[in-house]
């Protein structure tokens, strides 16, 4: 197994799928000559040429629409948004066109397309460049929503997303691109819709995805060494379809749950997870499920305030203590 970055894992996935299927092409701002704003597409222009690695003008709505049209006639476009913040300009194409085409055509026209790019906050990019959109897209029937946390998951899931016949919203993380991890040399894919237990434990379930998996790990280490509490970390990997079975199985075992996500609290991904748990595992709960989220404010620029805004391991430890009745009430 090679140890590579999340960025290179995505690059490998794109390269392998473009080699595998001539219908796959990459389109977006700066993906070609500039080698990608975050260098995910490094070397692809040279390998596949300008007809398959297409630099676009800054026109998110219409290059997303061009992707949808190409997918409707059988191509498998990968549309890169430089960040998901800019994809708000294209949300009409993602929601009104891509997600609904199969249904409103009575099953005639699938739209096999991947919309991808970094989501969530990086460092001090302030309000308009720091937001996690998982719940926005997960709300829409017809979309798959994927947010991998490790290089291994990123590669396996991107390959599955490209092969999937449905529109996939693929949320990466700017802060994850340099994360290193083991990735097998041989070909593999990871099915969409399967969560992964990243750490086993009997005392509490921590549900997380994308960047918050690292937050959960830090909290779990501290809980183990300081309190002897063994947390089980469930990484959702795919937000929609949600792997309720894995979440519920873990909560049935641990009887308590904390959900960590980068998005805002209101109508967030965690709200959906809580709903699933209270219906499927009500009689197994020893405490209310708690959530740790971004503070309910637009992201401030100030470094100090930004740190307060993002979910952090301290908050997760506190929440675990609370659901474990270890906080002295």
């Amino acid at each position: 197994m090679a140890t590579i970055t999340y960025r290179d894992a995505l690059n490998q996935a794109l390269r392998e799928e473009m080699e595998r299927d001539p219908n796959v092409f990459l389109m977006g701002e700066e993906v070609g000559v500039y080698q990608g704003a975050y260098k995910v597409s490094r070397g692809l222009l040279e390998a596949f040429g300008e007809h398959r690695v297409v630099d676009t003008p800054i026109a998110e709505l219409s290059f997303a629409g061009i992707g949808v049209g190409a997918a409707m006639v059988g191509m498998r476009p990968v549309i890169e948004f430089m960040t998901w913040n800019f994809a708000l300009l294209a949300i009409d194409q993602v929601v009104n066109s891509a997600a609904k085409m199969l249904y409103m055509s009575g099953g005639q026209i699938p739209v096999p397309i991947v919309f991808r790019g970094p989501g969530g906050a990086a460092l001090q990019l302030a309000a308009q460049h720091s937001q996690a959109f998982e719940s926005w897209f997960a709300h829409i029937p017809g979309l798959r929503v994927v947010a991998p946390a490790t290089p291994y998951d990123a590669k396996g899931l991107l390959k599955s997303a490209i092969r999937d016949d449905n529109p996939v919203v693929f949320l990466e993380g700017e802060m994850l691109y340099n994360l290193k991890g083991e990735v097998p040399e041989e070909e593999y894919t990871i099915p969409l819709g399967e969560a992964d237990v990243k750490r086993e434990g009997n005392d509490v379930t921590i549900v997380c995805h994308s960047k918050t998996v690292a937050v959960a790990h830090k909290a779990a280490d501290r809980l183990s060494s300081q309190l002897g509490v063994e947390a089980e970390i469930v990484d959702l990997r795919t937000i929609r379809p949600l792997d309720v079975e894995t979440i519920v199985a873990s909560v049935r075992k641990t009887n308590r749950c904390v959900i960590v996500e980068e998005g805002w609290p209101f109508c967030g991904v965690g709200a959906q997870v809580v709903d699933e748990i209270q219906r499927a595992a009500f009689d197994d709960l020893d405490a209310p499920v708690l959530r740790v989220t971004q503070a309910d404010v637009p992201m401030p620029y100030s470094k100090k305030l930004e740190r307060l805004t993002k979910p952090n391991p301290d908050q997760v430890v506190d929440a675990v203590k609370q659901v474990s009745y270890l906080d002295g009430n």
Binding site: S62, F63, I66, G69, A70, M72, Q93, S97
Partner: peptide, 13 residues
């Protein structure tokens, strides 16, 4: 909304 979509089919062609 379908103006770019049509161009997408043009791109595929």
């Amino acid at each position: 909304s379908h103006i770019p979509i049509a161009a997408g089919a043009g791109f595929a062609i």
